[in-house]
Simulated assay, not measured.
Amino acid sequence: MRNPEEADGFEGEASSRSMMSGASSPYQPTTEPVLPAHRLHVRCDTEYLRSTLGLLKVLEVLLALIAFICIETVKECLPCGGLYFFEFVSCTAFVVTGVLLLLFSLNLHTKVPQINWNLTVFGFLATGAYMVNSYVAVKIWRLTDRRQVTSQSSEYTRARSESRGEVESQPEIQRLEE
């Protein structure tokens, strides 16, 4: 049978009373204070949602969602590059602006004071500017590539025509050579 002192612990295990009983026990109480669990207090900031910035964010989220839904209804496209880019931009705008709206309307931005959230928005704008720059650069590159292919095919056509003796019958080719 067990002693009343050992009633707290399991067999072969020290009880909590014997752990705290003093110098004769090998188990000493901890010296670190027990802190209460840190809770994240989240509340909806209706003042932010009514402010100009809040209303703009809500409008941006709604417009990005509508744009994304509209682009998803397109069934066919022949040159789809622009369509895919618009789809990417509208989806990204919806997600990023939605996250920012949640951060600001739930006051979560105050829980991470190491990040300057207002400047972070400008970081997203700079990223968008770089993306537009990349898109334009690729578009120019493709145009240049198409012109080179077109000029190579016209040279091929001229060389083929010359080899067949068809140059005399095509005055526009003769004009280009002069």
Results as ranks from 00 to 15, higher is better:
residue 1 M to G: 04
residue 2 R to Q: 09
residue 2 R to T: 09
residue 5 E to C: 15
residue 6 E to Y: 11
residue 6 E to I: 00
residue 7 A to W: 14
residue 10 F to K: 14
residue 11 E to C: 09
residue 12 G to R: 04
residue 12 G to Q: 04
residue 13 E to D: 11
residue 15 S to C: 11
residue 15 S to L: 02
residue 15 S to H: 06
residue 16 S to L: 03
residue 16 S to I: 03
residue 16 S to E: 07
residue 17 R to K: 14
residue 18 S to V: 04
residue 19 M to W: 10
residue 20 M to W: 10
residue 23 A to Y: 13
residue 24 S to E: 12
residue 25 S to E: 10
residue 25 S to L: 07
residue 26 P to Y: 11
residue 28 Q to R: 04
residue 32 E to D: 07
residue 33 P to Q: 08
residue 33 P to H: 07
residue 34 V to S: 12
residue 35 L to A: 03
residue 35 L to C: 01
residue 46 T to F: 04
residue 47 E to W: 11
residue 52 T to G: 12
residue 60 E to Q: 07
residue 60 E to G: 02
residue 63 L to Q: 11
residue 63 L to N: 09
residue 63 L to S: 10
residue 64 A to V: 00
residue 66 I to R: 06
residue 66 I to N: 06
residue 66 I to G: 03
residue 67 A to C: 03
residue 70 C to A: 03
residue 71 I to E: 10
residue 72 E to S: 14
residue 74 V to T: 11
residue 75 K to L: 13
residue 80 C to F: 13
residue 81 G to D: 04
residue 82 G to D: 14
residue 86 F to Q: 15
residue 86 F to R: 15
residue 87 E to K: 04
residue 87 E to Q: 05
residue 88 F to E: 13
residue 88 F to R: 10
residue 90 S to G: 07
residue 92 T to V: 05
residue 93 A to P: 05
residue 95 V to T: 07
residue 95 V to I: 11
residue 97 T to G: 01
residue 99 V to E: 08
residue 100 L to I: 01
residue 105 S to I: 00
residue 108 L to H: 12
residue 109 H to P: 00
residue 111 K to M: 12
residue 113 P to L: 00
residue 113 P to E: 02
residue 114 Q to P: 06
residue 116 N to C: 01
residue 119 L to H: 11
residue 119 L to K: 13
residue 120 T to I: 15
residue 120 T to N: 09
residue 121 V to W: 11
residue 122 F to G: 06
residue 122 F to N: 09
residue 129 A to E: 13
residue 129 A to G: 14
residue 129 A to W: 12
residue 133 N to L: 13
residue 135 Y to Q: 03
residue 136 V to R: 00
residue 136 V to K: 00
residue 137 A to T: 07
residue 138 V to S: 01
residue 142 R to E: 12
residue 142 R to Y: 13
residue 142 R to K: 08
residue 142 R to D: 10
residue 144 T to N: 02
residue 144 T to D: 02
residue 146 R to E: 08
residue 146 R to I: 05
residue 146 R to W: 05
residue 147 R to T: 11
residue 148 Q to C: 03
residue 149 V to T: 08
residue 151 S to P: 06
residue 152 Q to V: 03
residue 154 S to N: 08
residue 155 E to C: 04
residue 159 A to H: 09
residue 161 S to N: 04
residue 161 S to C: 07
residue 162 E to N: 04
residue 164 R to V: 07
residue 166 E to C: 01
residue 167 V to T: 15
residue 168 E to W: 04
residue 170 Q to T: 10
residue 175 R to N: 08
